[in-house]
């Protein structure tokens, strides 16, 4: 009995150790390599025989306009979150609060996006966005990303609105507060946790999205970070150190946001997974 227990403990410890290694070693190795000289990278040296090099980060900015991509990513992500959360929470409020004809139909329709793989819509969206004169613009990406995250934000918000007692609004109405006033002054401040959850999930979507960014943009003034990696894979080819550095620069914001706002990410994933 005791031996079995020790065995089980050992096996699960080894298993966890493996999982941890597989998850973190690639990051650590690339992170460490981003401070190595190209000679050290090529000779597969252990440690830093030529000292820590920060030059790779400088070179990364020289080889590709990473600062520009950063700004693009920030713009697209900021407005992608703003539009998504505003639209979806407004819809979620009325869909969860008032029973009217078609409410259920609309809820199901708006969550349909969860069942449609984005890749299926590559060409149609390419066509729509060009027709609307939005191709190669921040606005085009913002609109697409806001729509992609619509269903998840809707779920997060609906499930939260349901936990707020209706009496709150009723008493507000009795005291003469109007619909809009009640929503913005009384309800919305209460939903701050849900709003931050939705915003974090939407942040990850906008910051990391690749396939639509790839087909809807065509020059560096608009391109976001993930596709920067794709386009500069070849121009970095001679300078691996810079490529390591560029990759780290792209990864960092996601990791920082995740570590700081882990609770929100987990909550959002749980709320979003009712989609099953």
């Amino acid at each position: 009995m005791q031996i079995n227990k020790i065995m089980a403990k050992t096996i699960s410890a080894i298993f966890l150790l493996l999982i941890v290694c597989v998850s973190i070693v690639p990051f650590l190795w690339v992170f460490a390599s981003s401070f190595k000289s190209n000679a050290d990278i090529m000779s597969a040296a252990m440690g830093f025989p030529n000292g820590l090099k920060f030059i790779n980060y400088k070179n990364a900015f020289k080889l590709a306009p990473i600062d520009k991509f950063y700004i693009n990513s920030i713009i697209v992500t900021f407005f992608g979150i703003l539009l998504n959360v505003t639209f979806a929470s407004a819809a979620a409020y009325v869909l969860s609060r008032f029973s009217f004809k078609g409410a259920r139909f609309l809820t199901v329709m708006l969550s349909m996006g969860l069942f449609i793989p984005g890749a299926a819509l590559l060409q149609p969206l390419f066509q729509i966005i060009s027709k609307a004169n939005l191709s190669n613009s921040h606005a085009g990406l913002v609109i697409v990303y806001s729509a992609l995250g619509l269903a998840t934000t809707l779920y997060v918000m609906i499930s939260y609105f349901k936990t707020i007692p209706k009496e709150l609004e009723e008493s507000a109405y009795i005291e003469g507060s109007g619909f809009v006033n009640t929503f913005f002054r009384i309800i919305l401040p209460l939903t701050r946790p849900a709003l931050s959850t939705a915003a974090v999930i939407q942040f990850l979507l906008c910051w990391n999205e690749f396939q639509f960014a790839l087909i809807l943009t065509s020059d560096n003034n608009v391109r976001t970070l993930p596709i920067a990696l794709y386009y500069f894979k070849s121009s970095f080819a001679s300078d691996y150190g810079a490529m390591f550095a560029a990759t780290i620069l792209v990864i960092c914001p996601s990791i920082i946001v995740f570590i700081l706002l882990q609770k929100q990410v987990v909550r959002g994933l749980v709320a979003g997974s009712v989609k099953g």
């Binding site: 990051f27 990850l204 990391n208 999205e209 690749f210 993930p226 990696l229 792209v250 990864i251 996601s254």
Partner: peptide
């Protein structure tokens, strides 16, 4: 970590 960074990265 591997789930929250961009797939491209």
């Amino acid at each position: 970590l591997p789930n929250i960074i961009s797939n491209a990265a």
